[in-house]
């Protein structure tokens, strides 16, 4: 069973909402659940990585280094930065969105060239999806987090309806439609690429 998840992104991308949805889905499915997050200064456009763990009994809210089963990336560089924490042969599901850190904007560093092969140095499976353009198609640019969750949902055993129910409870009422559409687009994207529920 896939138990330990990292959600990696940039402050403001909706990583904490994605964390909440994932954790509530697991709680709803009857697991012991813990999440670990960092708020405050770290959220101001900086790296934001949160963790969700499930199981019979969970102790540490943060996943020990090298034990993450799945990295959900909302931004490509941040997904890659989390890679050392992935279990060898773990799964990466990441948006292809690239947000330049300040050092790249000021020309002091270069945004690395990241491909599936870069991730396969450690990961067993890599899925990089155009989450941002799918979010735009879903009608709300801020729903790329739900696109990524949709893709993730396909490889977990919990029925889509549980996810959709939690998403509907957690997002602003006006955006439920766009969020659910984004979720199902992500799920369909993954459906075409991978067999289901082999967690």
């Amino acid at each position: 069973m896939l138990k330990d998840f990292a959600i990696a992104g940039v402050g403001g991308q909706g990583g904490l909402l994605a964390t909440t949805v994932l954790a509530q889905v697991f709680a709803e499915a009857g697991f012991d659940v813990k999440t670990s997050e960092v708020h405050g200064m770290a959220q101001r456009g900086g790296t934001v990585t949160s963790y969700v763990r499930r199981g019979q009994k969970v102790f540490s809210p943060a996943v020990p280094a090298g034990k993450v089963d799945v990295i959900v990336g909302l931004e490509l560089l941040e997904a890659y930065r989390e890679l050392p924490n992935l279990k060898p042969s773990g799964v990466v599901v990441s948006s292809d969105e690239k947000i330049a850190p300040i050092s790249v904007i000021t020309g002091d560093a270069e945004y690395p060239n990241l491909t599936e092969e870069s991730f396969l140095q450690r990961a067993g499976e890599v899925y990089i999806l155009p989450a941002l353009s799918m979010a735009l198609e879903a009608g709300n640019v801020r729903t790329s987090n739900m696109v990524c969750l949709g893709a993730l949902s396909w490889i977990l055993e919990i029925p889509a309806s549980v996810w959709e129910n939690e998403i509907s409870k957690l997002v602003p009422e006006k955006t439920i439609g766009a969020n659910l559409k984004a979720f199902s687009m992500g799920r369909r994207w993954m459906e075409k690429r991978r067999s289901p529920n082999i967690s």
Binding site: V10, G11, G12, M41, A42, Q43, R44, G45, G46, T47, A65, G66, L77, E78, Y80, R81, L83, P84, N85, P88, P101, I102, S103, V104, A109, E110, Y111, P112, Q121, R122
Partner: peptide
């Protein structure tokens, strides 16, 4: 055992918090 680091991930451009 402790996991091996992925080559290059230590030297990635950092992303400190910034003014919005």
């Amino acid at each position: 055992a402790e996991p091996d680091l992925v080559p290059g991930t230590r030297s990635l451009p950092a992303r400190p918090p910034v003014l919005c």
